[in-house]
């Protein structure tokens, strides 16, 4: 049985959304920053709990606020990743507001917050951030691959 799921990846520009998708889909990483224009669509087929899940990954161009994301990109999303850069405070300063805005388009579908670029910050900083941010988030590094596969599999499970 094949199940198709649309997954939206949102967040500020330069936080590593495209790199996370590239790591998950192609097992590749590049240090070069190339901005995304509009939306970049990739797909990855995974086997999960006896089902074939085709994940359509909508990697949306980074915006400084979720309010600026065109609603038509979010329409019909079965799940969402909100990505921020652990090393840039401005990318998670308005995390709650952004998530509130995005959740309006999700119709109760799951969303996972990812604190990316864990390779750039100290462990102690991450611990402090966990206690200062109310929203739960998962640590990832597209560069080292830390937690990337796990995050996508977790969202896939939550969408089933």
């Amino acid at each position: 049985m094949e199940i198709v799921k649309k997954v939206v990846i949102a967040g500020h520009f330069g936080v590593g959304k495209t790199s996370l998708v590239s790591r998950f889909v192609h097992q590749k990483f590049s240090d070069q920053y190339l901005t995304t224009i509009g939306v970049k669509i990739d797909k990855k087929v995974i086997e999960l709990e006896g089902a074939t899940v085709k994940m359509m990954l909508w990697d949306i161009a980074g915006e400084s606020s979720a309010m600026k994301i065109p609603k038509k990109y979010l329409a019909g999303a079965h799940g969402l990743f909100y990505v921020f850069d652990l090393s840039r405070e401005e990318t998670y300063r308005n995390l709650d507001t952004d998530l509130f805005e995005l959740n309006k388009s999700l119709n109760g579908n799951p969303a996972i917050v990812l604190g990316n670029k864990s390779d750039l910050v100290e462990e102690t900083f991450i611990e402090k951030l966990h206690s200062s941010i109310a929203t739960d988030f998962k640590i990832t590094s597209a560069k080292s691959g830390e937690n990337v596969e796990e995050a996508f599999l977790q969202l896939a499970k939550e969408m089933l």
Binding site: V4, K5, K6, I37, V39, K40, D42, M56, K72, G76
Partner: peptide, 23 residues
Amino acid sequence: CGMEEQFLSLKKGEQVELDCIHT
């Protein structure tokens, strides 16, 4: 792919635009 519902619910003359898609 995965957007059937969105398109099948369109009425005659209606349309959905998706711009700037890199794929």
